[in-house]
Design a protein around this nucleic acid. Sequence first.
RNA 1: GGAGAGAUGGCAGAGCGGUUGAAUGCGGCGGUCUUGAAAACCGCUGAGUCCUCACGGGCUCCGGGGGUUCGAAUCCCUCUCUCUCCGCCA
Length: 422
Amino acid sequence: MLDPKLIRQDLSKVAELLKKRGMTLDVARINSLEEKRKELQVLVQQLQSERNANAKAVGQAKAQGKNVDEILHQVKDLGEKLQATESEFEQVQNALNDMLAMIPNIPHESVPEGLKEECNKEIRKWGTPKKYDFEVKDHVDLGARIGMDFPTAAKLSGARFVVLRNKLARLQRALIQFMLDIHIKEHGYQEIYVPTLVTAECLFGTGQLPKMKEDVFSVNSEQGFYLVPTSEVSVTNTIRDEILEIDQLPQKFVCYSSCFRSEAGSYGKDTRGMIRNHQFEKVEMIQISHPDKSYEVLEEMTKHAETILQRLELPYRVVALCGGDLGFCAAKTYDLEVWLPSQNCYREISSCSNTESFQARRMKARFKDKAGKIDFVHTLNGSGLAVGRTLVAILENNQDAIGRIHIPKALQPYFDGQSVIE
RNA sequence: GGAGAGAUGGCAGAGCGGUUGAAUGCGGCGGUCUUGAAAACCGCUGAGUCCUCACGGGCUCCGGGGGUUCGAAUCCCUCUCUCUCCGCCA
């Protein structure tokens, strides 16, 4: 959520800045609602003040044993008037809040201009895609022989799921452990385990609701749970409604969890394989940062994700997303894209974003500085990494002519010291 | 699943229809004292929001929502969560 004060004071500037995303703000409607809001709020508070004064007068009169009929008569219809005004005010306020909740974050000034994917800016590249003197297979073909089982997954749950058997299941688990160990031991993150079934309130906090409702699965339960599309939802919401002491910052969490996405709106996209499944595993980094530090943190966190790819010897590039490609909450995002030989291109494997105070404001996550001044924290999140896609990348990049998979050195200790999946 | 108890400021804990945003204690901050520290004493110490250039002033919040009332932390309804006992269970 943007700062309501900013919206009030400089709406045209906000509208201008949002154009970078290709977003058009309904300035006229916001202005007229805002005007009404002000008028009604002043009126409501005036009436409330009157009511309070009267009630106090009654109390005092009674204490002195005086007759109160006269005061009571005077305030007879105040209640009704107040109630009517209050409900009108509430309506306007709700309408305004609903609009506010749908406005995306303002892009950082360093975000590349442009609305299309092609406008994303390559920041750096690491590694060189291998040359293969044979026809490369994609992960589906490679996986079929060694335990990647889509037919069975389809039997269980339908399209966009996978069953991993035997060594592939083991490989996935090794990757999770490997990533967690690096982030915990080398990058200083604290491991955290969280629920993957959460309330609507959490999803509002991290910005998936109300606008991105179609992307998340809701559970048909009494409690109205949702399945998290990323553990960012649960982890970031741990600080909802909190006022942290300044020395509690930064908070660095790493969390492994399953993630669930409905992938509505991506029909026909990546239908083959395990690039875009309804359920996938992810190791997620979250940082709760001081506002002054959050852009340093973003750089640092991106490097942390890169470390994993480097250790796994997977070629990748870092891309700064352009305005039009930014997620709803993000002020700035770096995507890490890993080389996939079968597609002959780089594909997203991690996304690191600074949401600044956008999520913090939605969830009232604040901190208190030394002087006692309270302000919103900045929240950042980054995949470190998407495990399923990492598995795909390892299979495809490390295949040989006879379809064996060579395990990267750094991962071998997590894989019983084995170097090959035959 | 059954029976009961509870939810108040950073924490502990009073208040159970009127001038209480809330006694008291602890903690925290500032000061006096001290070579320094401790102790003692004094003062301050919740969040949010609206109007205002400002000075100020108002409003909201005692787990969430609704109701009764001129007036609710206090009464009623409802939901959530926590605790105790019984049952069941990975």
